[in-house]
Each structure stands twice: as structure tokens, then as C-alpha cells.
């Protein structure tokens, strides 16, 4: 009995490796060298227009430059960028309930469900670059938002320099755009999850005398939990890696009010030509995101296992 069991286990393990192998091979082919190279670069000095072969070993200089004030200006910029990233991260906590609420509401209606769903997916479908330009237009000093506020008599709320142009409104305005863009992806995940719930289960639970909360806890939540984990990790990664909307809409301005780490990374790498510091920053954020994701996995872990 024991022998045949271990033979089966061995066969199962072999099958496991076989099934994972193509994904691993692809990573070895395309990802590994790229990643190692990039990590390596973070320990080198590499100036503007220099060849990678002429990089000079820098030890921990690059990390000290932006983390510990060896380069005062860069450290200041990095700190501000990180704080802004964390604000965007907090916004993820808003996106998830919105996405869930819309998914639930969408599931409740009977007519036009398909039309609504199609429309709700539009922010995801419309090409990102073009849509950020549109938002820029909405936020401009003479843009739709200011005109709307003027029309309804809320002149005191008007952002004279545009919503992306004032120190205290730029980041919130940007975050609204980010929320707008990230709801559909999460909404459709929740919607798909809710669809898989067998309505008979609710009926059965009702017959067992379960209350509304119990139904949610016992039937809905087990389906929604893994989805929430995905949304949380996606949102966290999105928040810490945010780049496109900031780069297109504000480039980190005004006065660094919307500076985020990836914009700083990009500027260091491709405007200042300092690949070393750029890679060091990029990988520091990698570590941060990774740790935060592990924590959220822990918290939302499946307790039945």
C-alpha cells in the first residue's frame, strides 16, 4: 500500500513538473537574463550615453543616493514620490468596494444587463494613451469640470490653474482618473465570480434558516475571497507601478505634487541616462510591492486549508 502510494506521488510530481516546464522554459529564455541584468545594473554607475560595457561598479552607492541622502535632491524627490504612491495605493481601497458594488448592482437588474456591462467595460477597452489626453482636457483651466462648476454656481470650487495644475488638487484629480480606469477590470472579475454562485445554494441555505449575512459569509465570500486577493494585489501593484497616466497627464508636476516612483525611475533612466539609479529604484519598489502582497495574501488566506 505504502509503495504504490509513493509511486503515485512520484508520478504526480513528474506530471506537475512537466506541466510547469513550458512556463519555466519561457521565463529562462526571456525573463531571467533580463531580470538579472537589470538587478546587476543597480549596483553600477552608468552615465548618460555610456555603453553598458563601460559601467563601473558602484557598490551600494545607487541605493544610498536615493534612500539615505547621499544625493540630497534625489532622496527628497524619492521620498515625495513614495508618499504619492502610497496615496494612490490608498485609492485602491476605494476601487475594490466600488467595483464590487457595481458588480452586485449589475447582477441584480433584469433588463439591459448586457448594455450596461458593455458600457462599463469601455474604460478598459479605450486605448489608454488617448483616454488620458481626454481626461487632461476635462481637467484644464477652461475644461469641462471648471465649466460645470461655474454653471451650477460653485465658482468657489473652480481650480483656476486647472485641476492638474494646483498643488492640492493635482494628485486627487489624477487618482480619480486612475479609479475610473481600474474599476472595470475588477468589476468584471467580481461579476464573473458572482455568476458562478449557484442560486440553488442560496435556496438551500435559506431552508437551513441561514440569515442574509450567513449566506454571504458561507456562500458568496468563499467565491469573492480569491477575487478580492487578486484585486488587492492588482491594485497594489498598479498603485506602486503607476506610470502611464502620470507620465501623460502631469509628468509628475506641478512642483512634484504628482511625482511617483516610476516616473522618477523613467526620468533617471531615459532623460538623465542614469540606468544604475533607475534600476536600483525600480527594484526597491519591487521589494516593497512584493512584501505588501505577501502580507495581504496572509491576511486573506484561505483558513479552511
Amino acid at each position: 500500500m505504502k509503495n504504490s502510494f509513493s509511486a503515485m506521488a512520484r508520478r504526480e510530481a513528474a506530471a506537475g513538473y512537466l506541466l510547469v516546464a513550458p512556463a519555466i522554459l519561457l521565463f529562462l529564455l526571456i525573463g531571467l537574463f533580463t531580470v538579472l541584468f537589470s538587478i546587476g545594473l543597480s549596483f553600477y554607475h552608468l552615465g548618460q550615453g555610456s555603453l553598458i560595457t563601460s559601467a563601473k561598479f558602484a557598490g551600494l552607492d545607487n541605493f544610498q543616493n536615493f534612500l539615505f541622502g547621499r544625493d540630497l535632491n534625489l532622496s527628497r524627490a524619492f521620498k515625495q514620490a513614495l508618499v504619492n504612491n502610497l496615496w494612490v495605493l490608498l485609492s485602491t481601497l476605494v476601487v475594490i468596494p466600488i467595483a464590487l458594488a457595481i458588480a452586485v448592482m449589475l447582477q441584480r437588474i433584469s433588463k439591459g444587463i448586457r448594455l450596461y456591462r458593455t458600457v462599463f467595460l469601455l474604460p478598459m477597452v479605450t486605448s489608454s494613451v488617448a483616454i488620458y489626453y481626454v481626461w487632461q482636457g476635462i481637467y484644464e483651466p477652461e475644461g469641462t469640470l471648471n465649466k460645470l462648476l461655474a454653471a451650477i454656481g460653485l465658482d468657489s470650487l473652480i481650480a483656476v490653474n486647472g485641476w492638474l495644475g494646483e498643488l492640492h488638487t493635482a494628485l486627487p484629480a489624477l487618482i480619480v482618473t486612475v479609479i475610473w480606469g481600474s474599476v472595470p477590470g475588477m468589476m468584471i472579475l467580481y461579476f464573473a465570480g458572482l455568476q458562478t454562485v449557484d442560486p440553488h445554494l442560496y435556496e438551500a441555505a435559506e431552508m437551513d434558516g441561514a440569515g442574509a449575512w450567513q449566506k454571504i459569509y458561507r456562500i458568496t465570500w468563499p467565491i469573492l475571497r480569491p477575487i478580492t486577493v487578486i484585486c488587492l494585489i492588482m491594485g497594489m501593484n498598479g498603485a506602486l507601478q503607476i506610470f502611464d497616466p502620470v507620465w501623460i497627464m502631469t509628468k509628475g508636476g506641478p512642483a512634484n505634487a504628482t511625482e511617483v516612483v516610476n516616473v522618477l525611475v523613467y526620468q533617471q533612466a531615459f532623460v538623465n541616462g542614469d540606468m544604475g539609479v533607475a534600476n536600483a529604484m525600480g527594484w526597491s519598489i519591487f521589494v516593497l510591492t512584493f512584501v505588501l502582497s505577501l502580507i495581504s495574501l496572509r491576511i486573506l488566506r484561505d483558513k479552511s486549508e
Partner: peptide
């Protein structure tokens, strides 16, 4: 791998 900084790895890629 999700958290790999996509922008910085462009030249190594």
C-alpha cells in the same frame, strides 16, 4: 514577476 519594474528592464530585454 508581477512586480518586476517593466520600464527599467527595457534595455536589458
Amino acid at each position: 514577476m508581477m512586480f518586476v519594474p517593466g520600464i527599467t528592464v527595457m534595455v536589458p530585454l
